[in-house]
C-alpha cells in the first residue's frame, strides 16, 4: 500500500512544478491520517472548509501530538520521553543542574489483570497515571515507559527533595481506591527507583536509565512498595566547602580586598618587584 502512495505523491509534486503550483488536498490522500485523528477523542479535526494550509497544519499537529502520547493514559510515550531526557542531558552537561529520573513500576500488576480482567488493568493504569501527574510539578514530565512501568523526569530537583517527592508518589498511589466495576474497588502499590543525572557530565539515556532501573530492582527485591534513590554523585561544592574556601584571610580581610580591587595600581608595584627580581 504505502510505497505506491509515496510514489504518487512524489510524482504529483514533480508534475505540479510544471503544471500548477497549487496542490489539491484531494490528491494528497489524507483520509488515513484524518481517520486516525477521528478515533482519538482528544485530537482536533481540521474542518473540511479550512484553507489547505490550515487543514494540513491541523492534520500534522494532530499526528505529531498522537506520536508523542500514550493512547491509553494520555501520558508522554517513550519516544517523547527519550527526546526530553536527551534535552536534559544536554542541559545538565552545561549547567550542572540537579535532575532526577524516577522509574516506577506497579507492583503485582499481572495479578490485577489475571483476577479482574484486562479492562480493570487499563483502569488501574489510567488511575495511577492521573495520580502520578498530580504528584509532580507542571515542569516535570511523567511518561508511560511501557506495560505497567512509568518514568518521571524532574528538572531542578535538589538531592534533598528527590526522596520526598518519590515518597509522596508512593503514598499517593497506595492510597488510591480504584473502582474497576460497580461492585469492586481495588488498591495497588508502586515501587520506585531513582537516579540523578551526573552533574556537569554528559551522560547517555542508556547509562542514566540503567542506574534508575537498578534502584527500581532493589526496591522490588526489598519487598516492593518502596523507594530507592541512588545517592547523588558529589560534584557540587557544598556551603561548608565554600565557607572554608572563602571564610579565611583571603577574602575576609578588608585590607586584602582593597588591594584586590585596585588591580591596575598594584600591577605597577608588581612590575617593579618583578624587575627587581
Amino acid at each position: 500500500m504505502s510505497p505506491p502512495r509515496f510514489f504518487q505523491l512524489i510524482s504529483y509534486s514533480v508534475a505540479s512544478a510544471t503544471d500548477s503550483s497549487v496542490i489539491r488536498l484531494s490528491d494528497l490522500r489524507l483520509d488515513d491520517a484524518r481517520a486516525l485523528l477521528e478515533h482519538d477523542p482528544s485530537s482536533e479535526l481540521p474542518s473540511p472548509e479550512a484553507s489547505p494550509a490550515v487543514y494540513m497544519q491541523t492534520i500534522l499537529d494532530g499526528l505529531c501530538e498522537l506520536s508523542l502520547r500514550d493512547p491509553l493514559t494520555g501520558l508522554s510515550n517513550r519516544r517523547h520521553f527519550n527526546h526530553l531526557l536527551n534535552r536534559e542531558i544536554e542541559s545538565v552537561a552545561r549547567s550542572g543542574e540537579s535532575v532526577l529520573l524516577l522509574i516506577m513500576d506497579i507492583d503485582h500488576f499481572k495479578k490485577v489483570n489475571d483476577t479482574y480482567g484486562h479492562h480493570a488493568g487499563d483502569l488501574v493504569l489510567q488511575a495511577v497515571s492521573k495520580c502520578l501527574e498530580a504528584c509532580v510539578r507542571p515542569m516535570d514530565t511523567v511518561s508511560r515507559f511501557g506495560g505497567e512501568e512509568f518514568a518521571a523526569i524532574l528538572p531542578n530537583c535538589p538531592s534533598s527533595f528527590g526522596p520526598v517527592v518519590a515518597e509522596r508518589i508512593r503514598e499517593a498511589v497506595a492510597a488510591l481506591a480504584i473502582t474497576v466495576s460497580p461492585s469492586e474497588t481495588i488498591q495497588v502499590t508502586i515501587s520506585i527507583g531513582g537516579a540523578y543525572a551526573p552533574e556537569w557530565v554528559r551522560s547517555t539515556i542508556k547509562l542514566w536509565t540503567e542506574r534508575a532501573d537498578e534502584q527500581l530492582y532493589r526496591a522490588k527485591s526489598a519487598g516492593r512498595n518502596r523507594v530507592f534513590i541512588e545517592e547523588q554523585r558529589g560534584v557540587a561544592v557544598s556551603a561548608d566547602e565554600k565557607g572554608m574556601l572563602f571564610g579565611h584571610h583571603l577574602f575576609g580581610d578588608p585590607a586584602a580586598e582593597g588591594v584586590a580591587g585596585d588591580a591596575a595600581g598594584s600591577a605597577v608595584a608588581d612590575s617593579e618587584m618583578n624587575r627587581a627580581n
Binding site: P163, A166, R170, L207, R218, N225, F228, I229, E231, Q232
Partner: peptide, 11 residues
Amino acid sequence: MSEVSNPPQDA
C-alpha cells in the same frame, strides 16, 4: 520507607 543507597562504582 525511603532509603538512600550508595552510588555504584561505574563511571
